[in-house]
Structures are given as C-alpha cells and as structure tokens.
Nucleic acid binder design. Structure first.
Length: 583
RNA sequence: GCGCCCGUAGCUCAGCAGGAUAGAGCACCAGAUUCCUAAUCUGGGGGCCAUGGGUUCGAAUCCCGUCGGGCGCGCCA
C-alpha cells in the first residue's frame, strides 16, 4: 500500500470506481464511460451521511438512463462493501453512504501509525518541481510588499513536497540590471561618508536608506580611500558585487525570520556571463522565433523620447501577446525578458515542472514568458515542459486605515523584519495564508499588531496546546493514550475523527489547486470542532478527556485527542507555523 | 483604448476542479467556568452571492455583456 492510498477517502473513491466497473462488466452500464466527473466527498450536511457520490447523476445521461434508476443499481453494488452500513439515494440522485463506526476507528489508529506522514501522499510521483519565489531585487531589505509572495511560495513549495514532489526552492537574483548600478553608486556615497567626507543629502535617484551605511563602512575598511576620487569605471563592478552580496545576506536574514530558506540562488549576471542567453537567442533565431524588427510606439501613453530602432524581437504575438518583445536593448545589453527567457530555459532543464510566484504587477509579462518557455522546452519536438505562473495579488498596506506609500527610492517602506518583530512569524504567515492569493488584501499594520491576540492562528495553536496539556495532565494521573478500547468512542468523538480524516484529501486538493490557504481554513475548522467537543465536558463530566476513575475511557479519549493534535501539527507544519505545546 | 485579477453579511474573508437549506471570524445582542487554563463554548439578528443574459437535471462557482475596484500595458525591472 502506498502512502497515497492509505486513507478512507481515497479508499472509497476506489470502491465507487470498482462498483461502476462491476456494473460495466455485468452489462448494466455501457462500457467506456468517462468517470472523470464522479466525486466522492463528505456531504456538506453531515446528517446526510459520511460520504456522498454524484456518480448516478453525472453518468445517467451518457448511459441513457435516469439518475435515480442508475443510483438504485449502484446502491445494490455498493452495499456489498462490508464497511458500508447504508447506501441511500437522496435528492436528484446523490448516493449517501454511511460507514461502520469501526472504519472510522480504524482511520484514527491509522493517524497514529502514520504520525507526521498522515496526509503525505505520493501524488506527485517524485517529479521535480522548481518553485521560484521572492526573487526581490537585491537593492535593499525585504519589505511587506514581498511578504505575501514569500509566504505563499514557501507554503506551496512545502505542500508540493508533502504531496510527493521533489521540490527545488529557487530565488532568482536580478544582479545584472541598471538597478544594481544605482545600488553601487548609492553605496559609493556611503563609502565616502564612512571616510569622513561631507556628502550632504543623498542625490535624487539613488537609494537613500540607512541600511547602506554599514556597507559603505565595510568598503572603507577594506579599501581605505583607494576609490574615493577614482572614476566610476574603476570601482563600479567591485562595489556592485560587494553591495549585492551584502544585500543578499540581509535578504536571507529577513527570509529566515519567516522560516524561509531557498535551496538555490541563481544569479542573472552569472547566467549572462555563461553564454546561456546567447545560446537561447541562437536557438530562437534558428526557429524563426526571434527576428530583427522595429517596435511600434506604445499605446495608451505618449512618450516624448520614443524612437523607432531595430531590435531583436521575440515573436510573442504568435502566443497571444499584443506585441513582439525585445530581448536586447539598443545598447546591446539583454533586456530583463531576454535574460529571463534563458533563465527559465535553464531551470526547465533541471526540473519536470516549473512554478513561478509573481506579484500581480508583473501580470503583463506572463504571456510572453510562457510562450518563450513553451517554445524553448519543446525544442526536440516533444511536449513543452509544464510551467505555471501563480500571481499573488497586491497587499495594500495601511496604517490606521491610511494607505502607506512605499518606495525604495524614497527610503519609505515597512520592512518585513519590523512586522515580524512586532507580531511574530506565525501571525504573519497565517495572516498571509488565510485568504486565496488571487484576491487583493489589506494589511493594516496597526490593526494587525493590535489584534494579533485575536488572530486565528492562536485559535488553532491553542487547540494543539490544549491537547498537549491534557495528555500531560493525564500522564500525571496515570492515564495513557491507548488504542485498546476505541469502541468506547461514540458519535460525538467519531464526528471529530471524520473531520480529521479529511486532511489527506484537503492536502491533495490544495496541492493540485496550488492553494495552500485551504489548509489554513481546514485547520481552523478542525480546531473549532475540537474546542466544541472539549467544552462538552463543562456540563457533562463524563465527556471529558480525562474521566476520573476511568483509565479505560480516558485512554481512548486521550488517544483521540492525541491524533487530532497530530493532524493539527501536520497541517501547521505545512504552513510553517509552530505547533507549540504551551501558549 | 487593450490585457490580467477581484466584486459573497456592517467589516475581513471562505465556499472544497457545478451539487442538497450560502458559511466562518470580527463587531452587536443574550447566555455558559465550585469541574481538564474562558486565548474556549452555546444561542440570536444580519445576504436579490454587483448586475443582465446564456449553458444544464442543478450556477456564488462555467461562458458572454454591463457596472464598480485593483494591477499592468517602455529598449524600466
């Protein structure tokens, strides 16, 4: 049995499929029906049963019968499954299944056996997926604008790994564009300052942030006044390299406060130096995907300095873009797109699939890069390498309801580490993960700081801590979690198990949809169900986890609590949030 | 003008690759701890799922139009 099969929901999807197969063999159903739309999931209303399938409804038409008639024969087939207590037809043709209590008790035991692996699956089949995220320009510390993509990308990468993919977490360092020259000049000012020169105000157009002060000091310590009066050409490259390295150290530290650690940092400058970009261009030219041409003036805005110049253009209009895109500038340097194209080609050679996490402000470039990657990776006439761009919408930063304008140029921004220091990693991560990534969100700094005690993350963590505390208390009284007498667990307890048992399918669905936020919502639901059950013990002492004078019942209940805690812990781990045993 | 994303309760958001009576948190109201920490629980009010069509057994969900909001539309990155 593989990991992907070891849970009840996956099992019953197969039971239903087998039942349909039996009907085909018997001639009741025509062969070759597409069962892709058949579902097997818990009904929204638990009173309808444990599992529900729409098989009769989606197959009735192609089978030339009506839903309820098909449901009747399918029910007869499903009732042969020993774990099925009842199979009922409901509404327009749903089939609702009730399973034996023992099958749920078995699932509970399975959670204990699987432990940290409960929910893990082999769905990905070991395929290598490269997830590129953050990739902020190395010109300053991480700010809140980067935060969402960082958290979503990291959680998605972990989710894919947990679902049976081999994941490479990658950061693309844009250390080759004009912005790093600006950085080098900004650092040179700080270098002069460190040497005691009067530099006055930081000139317009350079980065004014204080974070460059120590970089200037380090350069002064290393080089003395060697470059103080030297022409820019003498120091630009050296300063650029040193400054980028310093910025990347800072960024790595910032990411570490969120628990984010990339496997691979790829340098744009190194990529260009290696000749990979030229190779990509040659290949594209040979395949008539790059040609020399002249662009039309941009629409929708007027540019005084617009000039028509011949440039090497990528035929992105063939792939739905509204304009062909230059891969080189008139000065011969690569455009961002030109280098990016080669970069993706290189990534594709080392992975079975690519996922990029981008900010929504880059949405306009998705078509061209997807087109380029599709063209490059199907070079040998094969199928193109799967490549998805996941857009993470903007976070509107507010302070007491007032928008905070952020600009690195002006030095006015809310840094990531400020926020993490203030509210903590878990709150930041959970907040970013409790909404779907393709909707905009507001992040009111003051509000989040103030309301951090009410953050849903504590609700979930509290459930876990509560469980740990009870297990400790049980141990103090000599009660140990035990799976010996799970038959003592009744309807209310099994309702908890049924919810927890959905974790594996939630993980798979979240991985397929690339939506880690589903895990966060599931955990909230599970914590809520747990807190509810826990409070039953207020009025009904016999429902407590620790029942005085009853080690057998206490053992079974504590076992239940332990497994619920395990599932919460597994889910939190996926989100990169701590599952503390004390709050 | 064009492209992408969004529009669900007073507010912030879910709604599981179309499914049964649209949910949660916050806020508001009313309750529950001699008993495992109340960082919890129970109950209540509150929604023409922006809007108009279409697809089908069935639509908040898919398609088209309209309105409203965001982002983008340079040889920038």
């Amino acid at each position: 049995m593989t990991l992907g099969q070891m849970n009840l929901h996956a099992d019953f999807a197969r039971v239903i499929d087998a039942a349909l197969g039996a009907l085909e063999t018997a001639g009741t159903l025509p062969g070759g029906l597409n069962r892709g739309a058949v579902t097997c999931e818990p009904p929204r209303d638990p009173s309808h049963g444990d599992l529900s399938t729409n098989a009769a409804m989606v197959l009735a038409k192609p089978a030339g019968t009506n839903p309820r008639a098909l449901a009747a024969v399918l029910v007869a087939e499903l009732e042969k499954e020993p774990r099925v207590v009842s199979a009922e037809i409901a509404g327009p043709g749903f089939i609702n299944l009730r399973l034996t209590d023992d099958s749920w008790r078995g699932e509970l035991a399975l959670i204990a056996t699987a432990g940290a692996d409960y929910g893990r699956s082999d769905m990905g089949g070991g395929k290598v997926v490269n997830v590129e995220y953050v990739s902020a320009n190395p010109t300053g510390p991480m700010h809140m604008g980067h935060c969402r993509g960082a958290v979503v990308g990291d959680a998605l990468a972990d989710l894919l790994a947990y679902s049976g993919h081999k994941v490479i977490k990658e950061y693309y360092v844009n250390d080759a564009g004009a912005q790093v020259d600006v950085l080098a000049r900004s650092v040179h000012i700080r270098y002069l300052e460190a040497l005691g020169r009067d530099v006055g105000a930081i000139p317009e157009g350079l980065y004014p942030g204080d974070y460059l002060v120590p970089v200037g000091q380090a350069l002064a310590a290393e080089f003395g006044d060697k470059y103080a009066d030297a022409p820019e050409a003498d120091w630009l490259i050296t300063f650029r390299t040193k400054a980028v390295a310093a910025m990347m150290d800072m960024i790595r530290d910032d990411l570490a406060t969120l628990g984010i650690r990339h496997d691979l940092f790829s340098s744009e400058a190194q990529l260009q130096a290696s000749g990979k970009v030229d190779e990509a261009e040659s290949w594209l030219r040979a395949h008539d995907l790059v040609y020399d041409g002249v662009l039309e003036a941009p629409k929708g805005k007027t540019l005084e300095d617009w000039e028509a110049v011949e440039l090497p253009l990528f035929r992105s209009t063939r792939f739905g873009d509204d304009q062909d895109r230059p891969i080189k500038k008139s000065n011969g340097a690569w455009t961002y797109f030109g280098a990016d194209l080669a970069y993706h080609f290189q990534k594709a050679q080392n992975a079975d699939a690519l996922v990029d996490i981008w900010g929504a402000d880059h949405a306009g470039t998705v078509k061209r890069i997807k087109a380029a990657v599709a063209a490059l990776t199907s070079a040998d006439g094969g199928t193109a390498k799967p490549f998805e761009v996941k857009l993470v919408q903007m976070v509107q930063l507010l302070r007491d309801g007032e928008p905070v304008k952020m600009s690195k140029r002006s030095g006015n921004f809310v840094t990531l580490s400020d926020v993490v220091d203030e509210v903590g990693k878990d709150v930041v991560r959970f907040t970013m993960l409790t909404r779907k990534p393709d909707a905009q969100m507001d992040f009111d700094f003051a509000k989040v700081v103030e309301a951090s005690k009410d953050n849903p993350v504590f609700y979930v963590q509290y459930a876990h801590a509560r469980i740990c505390r009870n297990i400790r208390k049980g141990a103090d009284e000599g009660f140990v979690p035990s799976s010996e007498n799970l038959s003592l667990l009744g309807e209310e307890e099994l309702a908890l198990v049924k919810l927890a048992a959905q974790f594996p399918r939630m993980v798979e669905a979240a991985a397929v949809a690339r939506e880690p936020h589903r895990i966060a919502f599931f955990l909230h639901d599970l914590a809520s169900a747990f807190h509810s059950f826990y409070n039953l013990g207020n009025d009904r002492p016999e429902k407590r986890f620790i029942v005085a004078q009853d080690p057998v019942m206490s053992g079974a209940r504590l076992f239940l609590a332990q497994q619920i805690g395990q599932v919460i812990k597994n889910g939190l781990a996926l989100l990169g949030v701590e599952a503390a045993s004390e709050l």
